[in-house]
Design a binder for these strands. Structure first.
Lengths: 95, 95, 95, 95
DNA sequence: CTGCCATTTTACCGGC
DNA sequence: GCCGGTAAAATGGCAG
């Protein structure tokens, strides 16, 4: 019997994989995808900041603008909620 | 005489503008740009969430993954901090 | 008929309590405790400000002092982070 | 003449002082005083957090409590402003 | 008075 | 479904 054939098989499987039973490359890929998306989010946040700066220098009250946006978001959420319930009831009626 | 000259003048000024001295259209535009960017951010957050779900069903520990990402982010921040300090010291030496 | 029997009963229930189902005195106590602590915080902030003023008039560069303090705080945070991770890894090994 | 008498004098002055013209010990003292006060602030913040936790488990709405405290703070600020103006006017009248 | 930094507040996400 | 903790947003304060 050769020395550690089982070990070789494992090593084969290990090629870029499975350190301590963990699929390293898979993990790396997932982590990097997340990091990339977070980068994009950060860029968008920066863009938003720029718009508020622009608004400010155009004489708008940024705090109040934020409030408006917040209210519109809440209204939108309410609308969605209402639509969701409407759908739910429609389906219930079909029964 | 043309029809409603005074009205026209006011309307001219009001054309998409100035309700109570506020540039309404400009404001609307700014608000909508922000809202649009926030939508995009939300979509990205959703994508990130999906990746974590994928990771979880591949058997990874999501909490530890988050920890890894956080650490990498901190390391990056440390690097930035070091560069910042370097600049600061350079400036200090000029004194 | 006795004088205001109903009123007395309500007053009994209200004795430092329950306006609209809210334990008023308890709430007041909590709020005042928070306010008191915030006062103390404010006083400390003021003390810190004084020290920086003192430092400035002794010829120190306040901006750089703040930077030093910030760095020392970050180092402390890093240490804590490392300990936290150590614990995390210890727990992970138990799996 | 001994070698570097001037240097010795400087060294005397340097005892725990003046590295690169900076009063090191003085700086250290200032920094540590600030750090100590910041510690105290942090402890107070923690106490406040605890009170809100207590309030929450007593069934109070923490967000609304914060709003109340904020309003009372604003009122207090207004009062202070009024008192300040009152004093100012009193003094003005005395002229 | 503007911009920046610290603190505070809000919103999210995973775990129980 | 709530709770706890963590990350993002927003507000407030300070220096220049």
């Amino acid at each position: 019997m050769e020395k550690e054939p089982k070990m070789d098989i494992i090593k084969e499987a290990d090629e870029k994989n499975d350190i301590g039973g963990i699929a390293v490359e898979r993990l790396r890929s997932l982590v990097e995808r997340v990091e990339h998306l977070e980068e994009e989010k950060k860029a968008l946040s920066s863009d938003i900041k720029d718009i508020f700066a622009e608004a400010k220098s155009a004489g708008f009250d940024v705090k109040i603008m934020r409030e408006i946006i917040r209210l519109r978001r809440m209204n939108a959420a309410d609308r969605d909620e209402r639509e969701y319930l409407l759908d739910l009831y429609k389906k219930a009626i079909d029964l």
